[in-house]
């Protein structure tokens, strides 16, 4: 068992075009580290140099926006589903 991560179009260049990939971890942070070890460069698109989630992406664990569940500290476990979407916003 692993955690399914759904990848938005704009990040599929990191996953060889795959719409969904598998990764493992016990928090969103360790999951993203694992994701980056398989799909180099993807972490930089999700996490800032200061170690916070980019404002430009929304990440959901089982349909819950992680901004409300502890951001990168959000717990994840096998069988969970993670969805990454680009925020649609502007000025």
């Amino acid at each position: 068992m692993a955690i399914e991560v759904r990848i938005p179009t704009i990040l599929r260049s990191h996953t060889g075009g795959a719409k969904a990939v598998q990764a493992s971890g016990d928090t969103l942070a360790t999951l993203i580290d694992d994701l980056d070890s398989q799909h180099s460069g993807i972490k930089g698109r999700l996490v800032t140099d200061e170690g916070a989630l980019h404002r430009f992406v929304n990440v959901y664990v089982n349909d819950e926006d992680v901004r409300f569940t502890g951001a990168l500290d959000t717990a994840v476990k096998d069988g969970d589903s993670v969805t990454i979407l680009p925020a649609v916003a502007g000025g």
């Binding site: 929304n58 349909d63 926006d65 969805t83 979407l85 925020a87 649609v88 916003a89 502007g90």
Partner: peptide, 23 residues
């Protein structure tokens, strides 16, 4: 049509729950 969650004259943002549902 989507709701502008920012309700602002200078910014717009899809609500994150609406965004997930839309995609």
């Amino acid at each position: 049509p989507m709701l502008n969650a920012a309700r602002s004259p200078t910014f717009y943002e899809f609500d994150s729950t609406d965004l997930l549902r839309l995609y």
